[in-house]
Amino acid sequence: MEHNKSLDMDAEESLAELMLALTERNFAPPGDTTSGKPPLTAVSLLAAGHAILKAYQARLPDDVNDARDDGATLAQIARALEKADASTIHSAFGKRRDQDTIEASQEVRRAAARERAAKSRQRAREKYQIPELPGVSALKAAAIMGIDPRTLKSRAKKGNDPHIKAVTATTANGKEVTRFIVTAAGATQS
């Protein structure tokens, strides 16, 4: 929606007419002492304009929600209200009337999706039993022997420590990993 200058002019004329009507209805003309209304002064028009502004500001969130319910995007609403962007509208007016219901519904769907994924993973685990890998990881073997993991790998690679043996195993997903077998004597060596 592009900014419409003729709409601005019509709005200014209508606002002036509305403010004048409000002042005539709520304030007594000069010299009138019988109506019981407060006298019309220089600030009466200002008070009428302020009352209109307050009424519009109170109504604006409902108008924004109605526009959103009718399918308007936050960007379209921002352009209509001459705001910087959609985030300004979101910050100013927050959630839609039914946003909590929408979020609750989305959370239910997400929970159901998580449950389906967990069941699928469980079925896959049951269908494809993970083979037990021989030995232990380098960190665990190094901890058992009381040495640094890099030292363990070096000794296993060179084959000069009879208490460590490196073996290559294949995981369930086909990846080859190096595992280490530590003899009982190697475990008590530390």
Rank of each mutant, 00 (worst) to 15 (best):
G71N: 11
R68Y: 03
A28R: 05
K140H: 13
L53C: 09
V108P: 01
A111W: 00
E176N: 15
A75C: 01
Q99S: 02
H3R: 06
I130E: 15
K127R: 15
Q106S: 12
K158D: 07
D63V: 10
R68D: 05
T151Y: 00
L81C: 05
I130F: 09
T183C: 09
V182C: 02
T33S: 13
N173A: 09
A92Q: 11
R59V: 00
E13D: 06
A156S: 10
R155Q: 10
E12G: 00
P134T: 07
L60D: 01
K153L: 00
D66F: 12
Y56T: 08
A48I: 05
E2D: 01
V108A: 14
A51R: 12
R109P: 06
A156Y: 10
R68I: 05
Q76G: 06
R109Y: 06
F93D: 02
R150A: 11
S105Y: 00
S154L: 08
M19G: 07
R59F: 01
T183Q: 10
R121E: 15
L74M: 10
Q122D: 07
V64H: 00
H3P: 00
M9L: 08
T73S: 14
A21R: 10
V177F: 05
A118I: 00
E176R: 15
A185D: 14
I52T: 01
D66I: 09
K165P: 01
E13L: 08
A92H: 03
A141L: 03
V167P: 02
T170L: 03
G36W: 04
L81E: 07
S120P: 03
R68T: 06
S6I: 05
L74I: 02
S154G: 07
D32W: 04
K5A: 14
A67H: 09
D66K: 13
K83D: 12
A42M: 06
I102R: 13
I130W: 09
P149F: 01
D66S: 13
V43E: 07
A185G: 12
K165Q: 14
L74G: 09
A124S: 15
D62Q: 15
L74R: 08
K140T: 11
A48D: 06
L7D: 07
A143G: 13
A86Y: 07
S190W: 04
S154K: 09
V43S: 08
D69L: 09
D69K: 13
P29Y: 10
I89N: 02
L133F: 15
G174F: 06
D63A: 12
P162E: 09
P61E: 03
D62A: 14
S137Q: 14
R121W: 12
L18D: 02
A58C: 00
S137F: 12
G146L: 08
A84C: 02
P39N: 04
E176V: 15
P61H: 04
H163R: 01
T168Q: 11
R179G: 04
G159C: 05
R110T: 04
D66T: 13
D63P: 00
T151E: 05
I77N: 06
Y56L: 07
D10L: 11
S154E: 08
V136A: 10
V64L: 01
R114Y: 10
H50M: 05
T23S: 15
R109V: 13
A172S: 10
Q76S: 06
R114H: 11
N65D: 15
N173Y: 09
D70Q: 14
P39I: 06
L133P: 15
A142S: 00
A166I: 01
Q76L: 04
A55R: 11
R114D: 14
